[in-house]
Every structure is written in structure tokens, then in C-alpha cells.
Design a protein around this nucleic acid. Structure first.
Lengths: 359, 359
DNA sequence: TCGGTTATCCAAAACGTTTTGGATTGATTA
DNA sequence: TAATCAATCCAAAACGTTTTGGATAACCGA
């Protein structure tokens, strides 16, 4: 193993040299002096401008390479008055394991950002200081645009940015503004898929565990659920609806409440996979045979879904791709300020597994 | 719901005003003109320097607040020649669900970074361009320091940064350099805990599924495993060692290989939780009663561990805290270049659950 | 010969800060 | 009275780019 990168391993002399190179930062001025041209010319040569002699340009590039010149990002950005940086403010709920969704989403954004030469600035703010964080980033000109996610129906972040005409793109719609860029999954359609499937399996007594309806996703899915049930002549009984946020613990506890009722549901629709896992565990605890006599569905198709016992029937969303596409939409609007906002509604897919079988 | 943040909701006039404020960026010069003082004085007043008259300073601050002045971050950084930014280059394996570890680690780093006023620059590079990415960030002066994780025994990133004397702190040790800041868990001790427990449960035929031994963590744990087994007069048979990277699929497949041998192990030590989950599934597939006649252990105590069926015996590491502490160590060394590197070896904890019971 | 191109170059301004090295004033001290 | 000191202020330089608005010289066609 030592052979790999061995030039770095026992570096007595090498290190010193490198260290000197670093402490002496090469600037345009250095190159200019060395070549005997002005800073202007050097800058233009490196930018491949047409008004510099070919030979001069070559010589300049040669010297630049030889000196190991790398432009100073800060200086460039100050001059250009743009940061080439996209900001994302992390939601408090995305901080731990509970939300496997987030790391994939971030990766989708990050890979595209790197690809297009943008930096990704990730900020963690406490919920109560969330708006201050946005304001600081905007007014300190630290980012060129934002990615938003987990939107609310009336979303203060979106409202703020929209009012400033500050670029952003969001995963999830917002009711309180219009003309903005977003991607969303068709939650209503997703619920239709789920309900159709459950009904086909013989379920009529269907409950759900969902987060606050202030969250846009939840609201859309909830309405979709009600509507789809109605299409089958079924009703979503108030007693069969429980609020639970996002983690297994909530799913477990709320499912227990539902299942301990006099006439419990035969199926529970979890609004995300973690909730569904919790519900499965609750049912197991009560000795139910999950999949047969009691069904559970999730939402997200997280990796665990396929491996859980029983494997979870859930809705698949291409989170990684959504992140990437969102970033592309944002960059689009950064490059062309007049560009019409793009809006994308994705068709989700139902992944049927063993957690839902015929009654 | 509309009452909350209603100042943003129906903003006809408000929006315009805001928008004007933004397009007209307030600078020190603006304040200076308004107050009738020089830019220098304004700058010094806002920095609470002692050589500006109290009344003047107050007046300046008043006007600054009134105009909504926020310093231009780029200009400040260019002048100060520091970026106040910490970089983290994401390992390709951390991109999806498979590694719940990552989002918690990142959150630990990010929250502290925000707390100390540092930006967190998250970069996604393809593995083959990894070193280029580091070089660009270093030489373009885009970050003041790095957080490294998932170190190799001979780690090119650490070697590079170390040779340049560029600040970094890593989660995991590196063999190829010394005198650097790191946090690591005591993997040898962790394995001792696991082996002692398994032996106490009556296991003598113990196998393992571990990642490449080039990875420092894996190497340490592997050696710890061998040593701990030896302490009980046991040997780690070559046939009972399989390489698997990090996900359930690997765990599943490699566990099948182990279990289909003529004399299969009665316990499998997974080098992380995902591997362990896969192994559990494999055993279930073969009809084994996991926990009773066959034991599995994990490493990380990811959230799923407690909820898996059976719940997983595993090693607990405070990943979130480690991230935060790492960032603090890094900032420490940024502020005091001469500061001795700190090195922290954590005592891991064994969380015993039902996946390991008496034979 | 002259006006008009073209090719090549550059000084200076600009981006918005912080810092350096005084300058000015008025009061205090020797 | 002159020297010293403290308080208050600021012009200019610096950070390292990019861009603006020419300048210069050589060449071309009429």
C-alpha cells in the first residue's frame, strides 16, 4: 500500500518546497512581472481574450502553469459581484438518522453544483433563528440563490425570498406565492395509487398517520387520500387519523393508538417510511401478522424499505435526481434573470411489497 | 395559519420597498456620506474601536441600522485574507441512504460551524478527481481548513494537507503522518467488548464481514477482533472472513456465503450496522432464528438498530458530537497556528440487544 | 499622404472592506 | 512658553481580480 502516493509519504525535502510555494501565493502581478507585461494583459491572456498576441498568451500561460498560479476566488468574486455559491439551510429534522431522505437529496444537489462550478454552502440554523439566517446570507451577499425543501403552505422563507426577487428553487409547492421554480411529486396521484391498491387487497377501514398539515406535502397527500377514498365510496374517519412527525417513535406510538381502538383499521397509510416502520413494529408488538391481516404503506422508498420485515409497500421518488434537477433549475434562473420559472410535477410510482397483501 | 408571518403574505407595498433596499446595496461609503465622516471612521466605529468619539459612533451605528447595513462578506474576506469557511469533501459512499452515519456527522459539524460563525462548504467530487478537488480548494483559497473522515491507513488527502501544513482535523487516524488533529473511537476496545459478549453467550465459531483493510477503521477493528479472539484462545479462520463494503446488499450476500459453508459460524461480526442488517436478513432467509441459534453484531448504533427485527446488538458512537468536537478542534488550530494538535480516542459502548442471545 | 483599420497592449478604476501611518485639535504638564 | 499627551479623525494603501477606455504602432486602401 505504501507504494501508492509514495511521493507524499517520506517527504523531507518535498514538503518544505510545497510549503514555500503555498506561503508564497502566486498572483497575476507575479506573472506580469516575470513576463514583462501588465496585469491587465495577463488577466486577459488567461481568460483567452482575443486582444492579446498569441505568443504572449502562450508565454503567459506557460509561466502561470510553471508558477502554479490559481486565481484567488475571493478577489474574483468580489470583482464579479457574484458568489457562485448556492445556499441550503438545513431543516432541524434533517440532522440525524431519522431522515435518510436528506443525505440523498443533498448529494443530488451537491454533485450538480460541483459539476456546474458552484459552491454549496450548507447552513444549520435553529428553527427560531431560521429567518435571520436567510436574511444574513442574502444581505451579506454570501450566496447567489437558495434551494428550499419541506415547504409549508404558507412558507415564510419562500415569501421572503420571493418578495426580494432573490433566486430560489424549492422541492415542494407553496400556496402563498406564485411564479417561482419548484419540483414536486404528484402527491394526490400517489395517494390514489395507494388507495386503489389497498382497496384491491380488500381493505375498507383505512387509517393514516401524517405530519402537520401546514406542511405542503402532507396537505396535498392528505387531500389526495380523502379524495381517493371517496372515489371508492369510503370515508377517512377522524378517529383513524393521527398526527406524527417523521420518526419511527411517532409511527410506533400513533399506530398503537389506532390499533387499540374498538374497531381498529385494517390498513395504515404512513406519510413516510419511518412512520410506516414504526407502525409495522407496533402491529408486531400486538401480535398481528403484518401484510396479511394488517397492511402498512410508506412513502419515499428509502433503502430500508426493501429490507424491512416485511418489506414495505411504498411510493418511490427519485430524490437524488430531484435534487440535481432543482439545482439546474436554479442555475438556469441565475444565468437568465428573465427566464420564466420552471415547474415540474413528477409522477410517483407505487412499489408493492409484502407489507400489503390480500386480507 | 395565515396569521403567522402575515406581514409577508399580502405584500403589495412592502415587497417593493424591500426589493429596492436590496437592489441598492448599502456600503460603508453610503453611511459615511450620510453621517459626514470618512469610511475609515465608519468602519472603526462599527468595529467598536476606541479611537472614535462615542457620540459619533452611536450616530454611525444608528444610521447603519436604519439603512440596514450588512457588511459585504466577500470584501471583508478578501481584505482579511481568510475565508471563514470549512470544507468537507463528501465521500462517494455517503451519497445515498446507505450511510445514515453521514447526515448526522455533517449536522454535528454544521451546527458548530454556524455557531462559531464559519461557513461550511460541502463538495462532491468523483473519487478519481478527489485530490484535484482538494488542491483547487486549497490553492484557490476557498477554505481555511478541512474536515476529513473515513481515513485510509495511507491517506493521500491527509498526506497532502499535512505536507502543506494546511489545517485539517480528521475522524479517524492515519498511519502515514504524525502530529495532526483527530478523533477516533477505540476500535480495538470496541471489538474486545463485542468478542467478550459473544463468547459469554457461548459462541466460539465467529466470522466477520468487513470493508477493505486499507480503511483505517476497518484495519483497527480487524486487528482488535483477532486480538480479542486470541485472548479467549480462539482464532479468526480465514474462511470466516468476508469483505463487504457498507451496504445491506453486501452484508446479505457475504453472510450467505459464510452461512452456506460446511461448518458455518454461529455469530457474525458486522463492521457496521448496514452490513449487520444484511446478515440478519440472510440468516432469516435460511430459516435461522436470529438471536438464538445465530448471532449478529453491528457497529454505529444507527437509529434503525433499535427497531430492526431482531433489534441489533451494536457499538454506540456519538457521531453528532464527534462532528462538533472535530470542528472545534479545527477552529482551535486555525486561531492558534502554533497550537499542538489534539488527539482524542473515545471509549465506545456496547449496546446489547436481541440479535445476540445465549446459544 | 491621409483616414481608417487592426492588432496589441496597458493605466486606472472598480469591487467593499480593514489597516497603516499619520494629522489635527485642545488640554495638560514641565 | 513649549513640549507632551490624549482624543478624534482620515487619506491612502492594501487585498487580487476584472473591466473600462483608451494608447500605440503597423498596415491598408484610396
Amino acid at each position: 500500500m505504501l507504494s501508492k502516493d509514495s511521493n507524499w509519504v517520506s517527504c523531507g525535502q518535498t514538503c518544505l518546497e510545497r510549503s514555500e510555494i503555498r506561503s508564497y501565493m502566486v498572483t497575476l502581478k507575479d506573472i506580469a512581472e516575470r513576463v514583462g507585461r501588465s496585469v491587465t494583459t495577463v488577466s486577459r491572456a488567461l481568460a483567452d481574450c482575443s486582444d492579446v498576441n498569441k505568443e504572449t498568451a502562450e508565454r503567459i500561460k506557460e509561466v502561470a502553469a510553471q508558477l502554479g498560479y490559481v486565481p484567488n476566488t475571493l478577489a474574483k468574486r468580489l470583482q464579479k459581484q457574484s458568489t457562485d455559491t448556492i445556499g441550503i439551510v438545513v431543516h432541524p429534522a434533517s440532522r440525524g438518522y431519522p431522515e435518510p431522505f436528506f443525505s440523498e437529496f443533498l448529494a443530488g444537489i451537491g454533485e450538480k453544483a460541483t459539476h456546474y462550478g458552484y459552491d454549496l454552502l450548507v447552513t444549520y440554523a435553529q428553527e427560531e433563528h431560521q429567518m435571520d439566517t436567510y436574511r444574513q446570507l442574502v444581505e451579506g451577499r454570501r450566496v447567489d440563490g437558495f434551494i428550499l425543501y419541506r415547504t409549508l403552505r404558507d412558507d415564510p422563507r419562500a415569501n421572503y425570498l420571493h418578495s426580494l426577487n432573490f433566486p430560489f428553487a424549492s422541492f415542494g409547492q407553496v400556496e402563498s406565492i406564485d411564479r417561482y421554480s419548484y419540483i414536486d411529486e404528484d402527491g394526490e396521484y400517489a395517494m390514489q395509487l395507494i388507495v386503489n391498491h389497498l382497496v384491491a387487497m380488500g381493505h375498507t377501514r383505512i387509517g393514516c398517520i401524517c405530519p402537520s398539515l401546514e406542511i405542503m406535502h402532507a396537505y396535498i397527500r392528505y387531500n389526495g387520500l380523502v379524495k381517493s377514498l371517496a372515489a371508492h365510496g369510503l370515508e377517512l374517519e377522524a378517529a383513524l387519523v393521527r398526527e406524527g412527525y417523521f420518526d419511527q417513535k411517532d409511527g410506533y406510538e400513533q399506530a398503537l393508538v389506532l390499533l387499540n381502538q374498538p374497531t381498529p383499521p385494517t390498513a395504515i397509510v404512513g406519510f413516510n417510511d419511518m412512520i410506516a416502520f414504526g407502525a409495522i413494529n407496533a402491529a408486531k408488538t400486538l401480535g398481528l401478522h403484518v401484510g396479511k391481516e394488517f397492511a402498512v404503506t410508506g412513502f419515499d422508498n428509502s433503502m430500508m424499505a426493501a429490507y424491512y420485515r416485511p418489506p414495505l409497500t411504498t411510493i418511490s421518488q427519485p430524490i437524488f435526481k430531484i435534487g440535481g434537477k432543482l439545482l439546474e433549475m436554479l442555475i438556469q434562473s441565475l444565468k437568465d434573470k428573465e427566464h420564466e420559472p420552471s415547474q415540474l410535477l413528477l409522477r410517483p410510482q407505487l412499489i408493492i411489497r409484502e407489507s400489503t397483501q390480500s386480507l
